[in-house]
């Protein structure tokens, strides 16, 4: 009962924040925007429909997807530190996109560049799987450490590539390092939802396999499925999901790591499906709140979203760990 009350309170607070995102932010919008006929052509009206709504949809999708991918990784690798950011999958996607942008001149949101990003992600996943299958101990901790190594390697390569660019105004490239919520049109927001929603649904539908994996490979085999096949299937699916959001926003850290943990600590979900669904909701709201804060601290300045997620999520995570 106490848990339900806590969760309800948290949800209420987050929805209030969501309202603030739509009507607050760098430029507050009044409700008159929707009532007065003369306002339909006003700047506020355009800000609401052209900027705030598409941005909100983008932020909710990206936040939810990152949290869902993080939750899935933690089950797949049976390790609480497993997260696309820590395992180097995020940095590999980003590196692929930057390579496509710098060397091939393909915009990062183009299908071709996304293909390169996905290719880089799959290489890392194959390396992780290779490490897992061919390591004598099949020790998950070693796999995670291997991923951490890859992350350092790819992040350094990314940093070198960005610093080698003409310095004059290289600030645009920095979005890859700290994350950025770009301006997209409403149709693009819907396109992103159309890509990510089916993947998310598949992940949840086949959630019972994740339940089996969370009990260990031996139990999974007794349940009648090959854990390695399931792991491969989910890694490819989550890579697709990750690539589709990272090509727009760059690397946004911490959500994939912190949100599923917080959900476990607060709600203690009994199945992977529930965990992933709640993680999606809270990941979406968490990123939406972070985005509002990034634009409201010192308007008109906007801070990189990755910094805000880390600043917000870090203390929250530590507090929850301390309490438990």
């Amino acid at each position: 009962m106490k848990r339900l009350f806590g969760g309800g309170l948290l949800l209420t607070v987050l929805f209030i924040c969501l309202g603030l995102l739509l009507f607050g932010g760098a430029q507050a919008i009044s409700f008159d925007t929707f009532t007065a006929e003369s306002m339909t052509n006003s700047a506020d009206h355009r800000i609401f429909w052209l900027l705030k709504i598409p941005r909100l949809l983008l932020v909710l999708t990206v936040g939810g997807a990152l949290a869902m991918v993080g939750g899935t990784y933690q089950i797949l690798f049976n390790n609480s530190l497993a997260d696309p950011y820590i395992l180097g999958v995020s940095s590999s996607v980003t590196l692929g996109l930057v390579v496509a942008e710098i060397f091939l001149g393909w915009p990062s949101n183009s299908i071709k560049a996304m293909g390169i990003g996905l290719g880089f992600a799959l290489i890392v996943i194959l390396l992780l799987l290779f490490c897992f299958y061919f390591h004598k101990l099949q020790n998950m901790e070693r796999v995670v450490l291997f991923g951490v190594g890859i992350n350092f390697l790819f992040s350094s390569a990314l940093f070198i590539l960005i610093s080698l660019q003409n310095h004059t105004l290289g600030s645009g490239s920095m979005r890859w390092l700290f994350g950025n919520i770009p301006w997209i049109e409403l149709k693009e927001s819907f396109a992103l939802i159309a890509i990510t929603a089916p993947i998310g649904i598949i992940i949840v539908i086949f959630g019972r396999y994740l339940d089996g994996l969370s009990l260990g490979d031996t139990v999974a085999r007794t349940l009648g499925f090959n854990p390695n096949h399931v792991r491969g299937f989910y890694l490819v699916l989550t890579s697709l999901l990750l690539t589709s959001v990272t090509c727009l926003t760059g690397s946004i850290g911490f959500i994939g790591l912190v949100v599923p943990h917080c959900v476990r600590l607060v709600f203690a979900p009994r199945s992977s499906r529930v965990l992933l669904l709640i993680s999606f909701v809270f990941g979406a709201l968490f990123l939406a709140v972070s985005d509002t804060i990034s634009r409201s601290i010192l308007p008109p300045l906007e801070f990189p979203i990755g910094m805000v997620t880390t600043l917000l999520g870090g203390p929250l995570f530590l507090y929850l760990l301390w309490k438990r």
């Binding site: 932010g25 760098a26 430029q27 700047a43 355009r46 900027l51 705030k52 600030s171 008109p300 906007e302």
Partner: peptide, 8 residues
């Protein structure tokens, strides 16, 4: 880096 809302 500035907010697009302010810019508009």
């Amino acid at each position: 880096q500035v907010s697009l809302e302010w810019f508009v």
